[in-house]
Amino acid sequence: MTGYVLRRLVFAAFVVVAVSMLIFAITSLLPANVAYLILGQFAPPEQVRALEIKLGLLDPIPVQYWRWASAAFVGDFGVSMLMDRPVAPMVGEAILRSAVLAGISFVFIAVVGVGLGVLAAVKRNGPVDHGVSVATYLGIAVPEFFWSIVVILLFAGYFRWLPASGYEPMDKGFWTWAHHIVAPVMTLVFAHLAHVSRLTRSSMLEAMQSPYVTAARAKGLPERTVVLRHALRNAMLPTITVLALDVGRLMGGIVVIETVFSYPGLGRLLVFSIQSRDLLTLQAGILLVAAVYALANLAADLLYAWLNPKIRYGRSVA
């Protein structure tokens, strides 16, 4: 078990480092010249050259990477040229707000999605099962940005229950805050629920058809015990992996949702930094997303290992 944990930790660290290299490599190809961005488009060439030397933009790319990465390691992501602010606190605030949005949505998705999936599998071909099947098609076919339009149209436009966009901090009162966050959360949950319930359903179905479930029935156990004690326990293992996968999808989702709802989180910041070619913010943001995802996967792996006796207890013939 400790060996397994160690290897997972090393792998998570490797992923973050490799992603940082990838990000840096891609953004270094960016044609937008940083010096021109700072000095304006019509700056004299010699001034541009001087700034490039000062910023180290003429150094070989590995040297630039090392400079950036070693600073990033201690939490210094530089100063955004565009906003004239240090990147780290700016990204930090944004990711906190995104985390609130994504966290609430994730809890809903996990609880409701897994619940629906289990119900659908147990009552196969029942109403819940058919409902999940239809919802699955909708969930896969309707993109987040269209869900958000529908939500806005219905709840902000038609019913006028919710604001169409914007964000209010918690210190303006819990209800004001909640009022603004309902629509984006609802959209995210709609868009991602089906994925989780569908995969939960299939792993539950597989467990229900396995020989050990038949063996449990052969012991005369009531169906409830068979499902909860024998099938669900084993079906949860693949579901954990699915949920971790969904953290990644959710982070992709917030990019779109935050843009539509003008929610000042990391997603909107990233889109904005791309549109305005704000290199340092972009690098920091994507690196953080990758790090969060790597952590989510690590957590899933550890939970998986802890729940799976084959990993938790090595092979030892008693």
């Binding site: 990000i23 190809l29 960016l30 982070m251 992709g252 990019v255 791309i274 070619r277 994507i286």
Partner: peptide, 22 residues
């Protein structure tokens, strides 16, 4: 391992990153 690295960035962000370049 290369695929793992690419998979650890959500697809839309990877797309954004690529498109941000040009």
């Amino acid at each position: 391992r290369g695929a793992d690295v690419l998979l650890s960035v959500p697809p839309i962000l990877l797309g954004l990153l690529v498109l941000a370049v040009t």
